[in-house]
Amino acid sequence: MVFFGIAIAALVSSPGFAAVRESFFDLDFAGDSVGGIASHFWVNVKLFLICEVLILVVGLTVALTRASRAPVLAPLRILAVVYVDVLRGIPTVLLVLLLGFGVPALQLQGLTSDRTVWAGVALVLSYGAYVAEVFRAGIDSVHPSQIASAQALGLSQGETMRFVVVPQAVRRVIPPLLNDFISLQKDTALVSVLGIFDAVFYAQDYANYHFNYTPYVVVAAFFIALTIPTARFTDWLQARMRAREQAAAR
């Protein structure tokens, strides 16, 4: 609280504040741009919702491939390692640019040239690599005695993964996963570099036209309004899980 107080005081008392207030905190421009931003924000939300599901699928598939022990899957394991190493190394913004402009330029039959789709693919590939590592950490954190116990009951390796290891792993990685998803919510803004009319590109367009940056602040508020409920929802989810699985008496 004290910190925020000092920060606000510093901001307000700064010599350039009058000019900043005019170009960043103008209520008239805020009111004028909020409707357009809201309708274009839907692009970000849609991208996030669709990518999130696909990222979970990609991430878990890659993690399970890396965790597999069967010798026949060795080539897939190598592929999974290469995928994570390469995709995690490329800045997401570059991947968005490469796929968003590159793939439609190939003019391949049967592939869509919709840049929004390719931007989504770029986000899925980039975040899939991160989430795969999160899942893998969760899988590795399940104690070997759990696996021994499942095998002693006659479960196959696949059944052990499906019924014993993965459910426990997923519960443990929910906080880091949420962290990645908040990050993804914000990174949907990267599609604006392709000129796709999401909330950020709309705000940029509006700002350039009116010589006023207030829409950027409005967009920021929209993103905050999206990320905070996600965080609270996951807190609630975790608390409920803990309450169910652990002793109230302890």
């Binding site: 005695s145 759990q146 021994a148 116990s149 059944e159």
Partner: peptide
């Protein structure tokens, strides 16, 4: 086992029925 090794994410009943059902 010495350390029970029950599956913490399953109820006692589900712990007992997992293998009979799957195996």
């Amino acid at each position: 086992f010495q350390a029970y090794n029950l599956f913490p994410h399953l109820s006692v009943l589900d712990n007992c029925t997992l293998a009979p059902r799957r195996v």
